[in-house]
Every structure is written in C-alpha cells, then in structure tokens.
Design a binder for these strands. Structure first.
Lengths: 372, 372
DNA sequence: TTGTATGCGTTATCAA
DNA sequence: TTGATAACGCATACAA
C-alpha cells in the first residue's frame, strides 16, 4: 500500500491511563437450549396425524376448518415452524442462492459491493429464498469449492459479482448443471447482466469532444475485467467515429488504483503533444491522475479536463469534483437475480443483457468547459 | 437527501446514437440438468452397501483400505458430494451462521460493512460453516423473521452487526435458545464484541486538551447507537477528569449525517463563547462541521480544531484531513464470530468484550497544533 | 383424514 | 474385523 498518497498520518495505540478495556463476563445464562418442536409433537398434542398437521400448515382445503384451527392454535402457541432442512430434503432444493463476491480488498468502489448485494438480497428475499455469501479467494477457485457447494445441494444457483474473464471455475460450475448468472461481468456465454459500458464510454468521450477536445488520453484497466475492456472499446469507437486523434501515445495502462493512475498520467504527459483531456476507466485512477497533473504544474479545469468512471463517493469530494459514469449496481444486482430465478423456474436459455448507465457531469473538472 | 451538499451535478441519460444496448440471447444451452449422484448410486457402483460408502467418505478405520480406496475412486470420478441437507437433518444442525446487517442505506461508513462481513466470513468458512445474510428491515424485526429462521433450523446462530439498543427482537431470539453475538453494539447482556469507544473518545479529548484546548465542543449521535453513546460518555469523562470546561452549550445533537453535523456546528458556533475544538462522534458529521465552520468565516486549523470518528475513507480526502478514531471492523467481526462458535460448542456464558481502538492523528486538521 | 413411502445420509445393531 | 441391515431425523405427497 502506498502510504505516500494518504498523507502524513500517525496512529496512536491506547495509553494506560484508562481502564475500560477488558473482558466482562455476566452469568445471566440465556440460551438454555429451548425445545424445538417437530411435526410429530404437534400431531400428538393435537391428537391428529402428522399429515393432518402438514395439511393445516400448508393451509390446504382438504382438511376441515375446525381441525385446521385446532392445529394452528397449537402451532402458534408453541411457536412451531417446520424444519427448512426436512422440507429441502423432500422438495429437492435448498432454497438458497449463493453470491460469490470478489475478495474484499479488491472491491474498490464503495457502492459496488453493498449496492449490488442489497439488490440481490431484496430479490432473493422476495422469492422466499436465503442468500449465502462466499468469497472468490484463490483457494475457492482452484479448490472448486463452488462446484462442491452445488453438489452438496447447499445452493440452487449462483450469482457472481464482478468476476474476472479468466474465472473458468464458473463455466465448469455451469456445465455441471448449476444455474449461474454473472453480475456486471462477462464470461463465455454465461447469462450476465452488465452495464452498457461501451455506450457510456462512447458518450463520455463524445461529451468531451463536444467541448472541443480532439486529443483525449485514456487510462485503461486490467485486461481481465470486462467492464474496463468495454469502456476502452467505447473510447476507441468514439475516437474513430468522431474523427478524434488516435494514437498509442494517448493510451495508457493502469490497474484501477490511485498509484497506477498517477503513473499512467505521468506517462501521458511525458509526450511532446500532451492530451487536453483524459478519460480514465475508473475514478480512483482519475484521482491519481489529478496528482500527476498538479505535480506537472498544470491546472485541471484549464489545462486538462478529466473524466472518470464508477461514481464512487470520493468523486464528489475531491477538488475539482469528478465527472464520471454511474453504474446502478443495485439495479444490476436485482436484474441478475431475477434472471437467475427465471432460469431456476424454466431452464431458460442464456441471456446477456446490458443496463444503461448514466453520465454524471460535475462542475469544474473541465468536462463542462467549452474552452477550445 | 440533501443534494445541496453534493454540489452541482447533472446526470445524463443515454442518447440514441449508439446501439449496443439491448438483449442478446444465445442458445448454447448449458444447464442441461446433470444427474446428481446419491450415496445409493455410489454404493451400487462400488458393489457395497450405503453404510460402507458412508464410512469411506468419513475416512473411518472400521473399513478396509482397499474397499475405501475403491469407493473413493468412484466418488472422485463422478464427483459425488454428500448432500448437506441430508447431513444437516441427521446431525441436527444447519451448519449455517446468519449475519443480520443494518439496512444498507444506513451503513454510512464505507468499511463498516465490508470489513466486518469479511472478518465474519473468514471465521465462518474456517469452521466449515456457511454464512447467510439477512437485513434488519422493519418487517424483519416486527415480523420476528429471525426467530422463524431459527425455528426453521435455517441457522444455528446469529451475528448482528451494529444493531440499535432498542432491537428487542434479538433478546427474544436469544431467549428462544438461539446463540446471538452482537458485532459492535450492546443490548441487555447479550454477548457482544465492541470497540472500546469510551476509552478512545477519552483519549481523543485528552489529545486535544494536551494541545491546549479547554473548551471542546462535542457532537453526539443518536441515543440508540451504543458506540455513539459510549463515545459521548468518554468525552464527558475526559472533560471532568481533565478539568475542561463543561457546559450544555458545548454539547450538540446530531444524527450521523453531514447535514446534522452542519446544523449542530452552527448551533455550537452560535454561542457567545465558541469552542476552540470540536469532537464529533463520527466523521460524516465532522465533515458537515467543516462546512459550518467555513461558512462562519473561521479557519479550521487556526480557529477551530476538529476530531472525528470511524476513519471512513473520506476522512483522508477532505481538506484538511480529519483526525479520527479507527475501528478495526475486520477484527471485531472475527472476534464476534469466534465467540459465537464458542457458544455453539459449549454453551458459554455471555461475554461482553471491548476491542482497543486506535486514534488516527492527521496533519492540519488542528488536532496537532499546540496553538494555545 | 390417515398410513406409508420418499428423499439422503448417519449410526447403532447385528451377522458373517 | 468387516460389512450389511434397519432405524432415525423431518416434512410431504399420495394412496387408502
């Protein structure tokens, strides 16, 4: 981690002149292992058979109202709930969706994680399913943990958030029969919901072009991240379609973090004819670009315009505020999850769907100056 | 939402001159419902009984090595994995821990969510359990969904992240016999892991006092959030212990967001003798305080010092950078989860444990100027 | 309305 | 000693 970017910062561990810290043990002793009733217990208490209880629980009309009421009264009184495990066993489905997340450290943009999870969770809950979370660690991938999970019937289907284009463990999983939907990524012809990044990038570049920019630099991202690839494609398409300057000197490589954005920008500025605007694949690199631009003694609205991507919270707090591409991860998560349930229900064919993204144009980052 | 604070910002929906957007359907047709083997299938294929297969799977020594090898060869070849559902049924435990999260919108600080979840997930995985996620919506609480989940045997224990002090649904759950551990909160005498916020706040105030501040304002948070209560207690203890000025005029009420921090600070500054430093219970309100301080024509390092709490990412990006209290949510999540497994194993007595927090002293927010 | 088989793995018991 | 048999855990579907 590059602490240089974080500025001077000292961290103080606790001093000894305060004594709250420690362990306090209380003996109130709850958790006294209350009995959990089974359908047998209820049947006995009601003086009926287990099947009758089952019918009552499922509000069947093959049972007379009085019996049903009597059973349900007991059910409510003792707080009986049928075992989800036993139910899963007969129904031959777990009632569980698994979401595979990138390793936390890699989840750069603030909302990516929480928003997509939120969208997924809402849909999963609405379908009466549960959501289990797994993390795509190297061991998880190479150990084929996902496949094991499916074969163990732990889950009925999988959502994968922001996987790499090299994650073949997912295609294997799908080939084994497990429904898989990708959230904001692409892999083979697996069903996927993803933002229309080509389109958004195209429009970002077009926006800069409209302001008079002809020489627009670009900081691309890793070659294994589909959204980044698409954005770079959109940039290239726009450059060609709009007849802007096209050159290798305008194409820098970054790896999504601030440091690499800084380095990429230094490189872009090192050429004799430097760009008048820079479109970065994500916000963090654009923030790194700010560092490099300032270091070169250039002013950001006046000398170089900036455009980022992802609309992380920081984008509105840096000075100048960053123009960027907003991806509605909540929506993407929701849609992906709905798609998964479609597949779960009637074994749909694969679907690759793009969700429109918004441009967020903020003042004073140069993306709204028609200076040239 | 107060857009005023976010600054001017226009959002552009897609134009029509680009045509990527849409749905592309491919017919590759995976998901062809591969057969999932059961222990019966394996037994037949190996020409042994089901119990023999079970013994082989569990690497028992009551079975001769050759038979075991033969069975396992088949198991590996066809990729058989015993059903977690059937296993759960006989073992009488789900092998699932449930984490209840606050509603996403309320999870203000960036890392609170992802870091604690990450710590929990690591421990849950290490114990061979699975993690299901639920969100503490109003319906979830009032509908006693957690209790139902426990009675349905969906989960063996519960971790709750950042609950309110009014969430009695959790005590009910615990009284029904479900092991519950609170992550960074307090409720009755439920087991809990929480940061040593009193201590940290005390040290933050002491730090300001050492720099010469005698009149330190404080922005408190909601009365239902334990961590905020503790910090305010720590502030008060420090004020008394160090003989600083104590006054109602120095105690402002906020609700964790930028807007209320702004309002609280305006109020603090409205009194004839304004504070020379402000300690806010969290960072977002401290950032709101910056707005108010600047609006009042005051300079932040020189006229008023600032100290926040939580160490959100933003804290290092605002100008000046914020001094703050860092809570290691990864660690707190881990510890809480370990505690839960302790309880699961031998029905421990309740434990309330505090984890030491760090002060993060950053340049130029006034918390390092010994000006007076 | 109820008895019974089913789903799948584990374990105690019993036979070879 | 090794392996086969049966009962168990819990809810549901279906025939009786």
């Amino acid at each position: 981690m590059n602490m240089g970017f974080l500025g001077m910062c000292s961290v103080q561990q606790g001093s000894l002149d305060y004594r709250v810290c420690g362990v306090i043990t209380s003996m109130a002793g709850q958790n006294k292992e209350k009995k959990r009733y089974t359908i047998r217990d209820i049947a006995e208490m009601a003086g009926v058979s287990r099947s009758t209880v089952s019918l009552a629980l499922n509000d069947s009309d093959k049972i007379n109202a009085k019996t049903k009421a009597k059973v349900m009264e007991i059910v409510e009184r003792v707080g009986y709930r049928p075992s989800a495990i036993a139910r899963s066993l007969v129904r031959q489905q777990a009632g569980v969706i698994c979401v595979i997340l990138p390793q936390i450290g890699h989840v750069v943009s603030d909302f990516y994680f929480s928003e997509s999870l939120s969208g997924i969770l809402d849909v999963v809950t609405a379908h009466g399913y549960h959501l289990v979370v797994e993390m795509a660690t190297p061991e998880f991938k190479t150990g084929k943990k996902a496949l094991a999970l499916y074969r163990q019937r732990v889950m009925d289907g999988v959502l994968c958030v922001g996987n790499l284009t090299t994650d073949t463990y997912l295609t294997e999983l799908a080939e084994a029969g497990c429904p898989v939907v990708l959230v904001n990524s692409v892999l083979g012809n697996l069903p996927a919901i993803i933002g229309a990044n080509r389109q958004a990038a195209y429009r970002a570049v077009k926006h800069l072009a409209k302001l008079g920019h002809r020489r627009i630099g670009h900081i691309r991202g890793s070659e294994f991240v589909a959204t980044a690839i698409h954005r770079t494609e959109g940039y290239l398409e726009a450059v060609r379609a709009l007849g802007l300057e096209e050159s290798d000197e305008l194409l820098a490589q970054g790896y999504f973090d601030r440091e690499s954005g800084y380095m990429a920008t230094k490189w872009l500025l090192s050429h004799s004819r430097r760009p008048t605007a820079i479109y970065s694949v994500n916000d963090m690199m654009a923030i790194g670009a700010m560092d490099a631009i300032r270091e070169a003694g250039l002013r950001i609205p006046e000398d170089i315009a900036l455009f980022g991507g992802d609309d992380i919270v920081l984008a509105q707090y840096v000075t100048p505020k960053l123009s960027t591409i907003r991806q509605n991860m909540y929506l993407i998560g929701q849609l992906a999850c709905e798609r998964l349930f479609d597949i779960l229900k009637d074994k749909h064919s694969e679907v690759y769907e793009e969700v429109e993204l918004e441009l967020v144009i903020r003042e004073s980052c140069g993306a709204n100056k028609s200076s040239r």
